[in-house]
Amino acid sequence: MNALKGFSAPIVAGVVLFGLWQGVLSLFNPDGFVLPAPSEIVGALIDNWDEVYQGVRITGFVVVSGLIAGIILGILAALLVTRFRTANETITPLAVAVNAIPIIALAPIFNNWFGLTSPRSNQAIVVALVFFPIFINTTRGLTQVDRSQVELMESYAASRSRITREVRIPNAMPFFFTALKLATSLAVIAAIVAEYFGGRQDALGPMITQSAGLTRYDEAWAAVLASTAIGAVLHFAVLVLERVAMPWHSLIRNPK
């Protein structure tokens, strides 16, 4: 598996970092009160496995569903905007205006709209946050095409939709994946922060606030670790998807 290759370095770096963390704490902070040692966090993770696992399922669902909906909407809007001038003139300024709102600040308001314990409000936050980078970057990729490639297609009397398929969409792929990597980490942050304000109480967000409120920092960190895992798995999935979708693209970065 080619995609695994890029992961050996971060894994080594992670092991070294956690080793240092554990070592430094055991030397200077034997109580491990505010910042528990990795061993304690892992201990808390094992002790509270059922709750953490449930939290990962709930939060993971919010993240993944919001991500998928945001991606689909972002791509559709980008295709619409590049195809129709009127769509461009209406959607683009609207999207820019919406993006100026710090969307996460809407979490308490969305909770009122969708019901305090409904995951819908958190999903909506994730969708709104994911939509924008996907929309903007994909639009850029669909429009910033090599002029001679479009002219070549025109010289073959290719239809507009054929030009979109043969030139615009492949050209937009690297733009889309750059946005997708950004969007996955945004999605996890958005979901957790949104959960601080409402949604299901067995999600990771409430677990972090409640454990920290009760000064059970090892449990709070265990939940943070679990949310990190969601982000890491998603990021890895995106990298694999990228290689599968654009086998030609790695050739640019690693010339033989």
């Binding site: 001679s148 043969e166 030139v167 792929m173 693209h249």
Partner: peptide
């Protein structure tokens, strides 16, 4: 064309 205008994805 003056520039090759090949498709990297093909």
């Amino acid at each position: 064309f003056q520039t090759a205008g090949l498709f990297d994805w093909r």
